[in-house]
């Protein structure tokens, strides 16, 4: 039963107030894309033991989607941030680097 702070409304929300949305920062591939790129987009997901970036919706609250940087083993939350971005904020990446030097996740490090 995780808790996350919604970056939009500031509510420290219980997991039961949230809806999970899978992996964050997927890049959409539409008509005209190669089969392999489309397959990656639609089906291939990270399943890390460690740092992960996820989508959550504050479903029982303000209704907004946000993203969370979380360690799947220690459950440490390095931050939550609005979904209107294609990569994690530098501040959160720095925070992760402080504790997990050399971390990588997809294209980020």
């Amino acid at each position: 039963m995780l808790t996350f702070t919604c970056p939009y409304c500031g509510v420290h929300a219980d997991e039961t107030e949230l809806a999970p949305g899978g992996e964050a920062h997927l890049k959409r591939f539409g008509p005209g894309s190669e089969d392999e790129a489309f397959e990656d987009y639609l089906f291939k997901r990270e399943n890390p033991k460690g740092m992960h970036f996820e989508r959550w919706r504050h479903a029982y609250g303000c209704g907004k989607w946000f993203l969370a940087a979380r360690c799947t083993t220690t459950l440490e939350v390095f931050g939550t941030y609005p979904a209107q971005t294609t990569e994690p904020p530098q501040e959160i990446k720095d925070k992760i680097s402080g504790k997990r030097p050399g971390w990588t996740w997809r294209l980020f490090s």
Partner: peptide, 20 residues
């Protein structure tokens, strides 16, 4: 402001989300 409601009697304003 965010997370607040100002209500007096039957009237009021409730902050629902950053755009509502």
């Amino acid at each position: 402001k965010a997370g607040h409601a100002n209500c007096v009697g039957e009237k009021g304003l409730c902050w629902m989300s950053p755009d509502e």
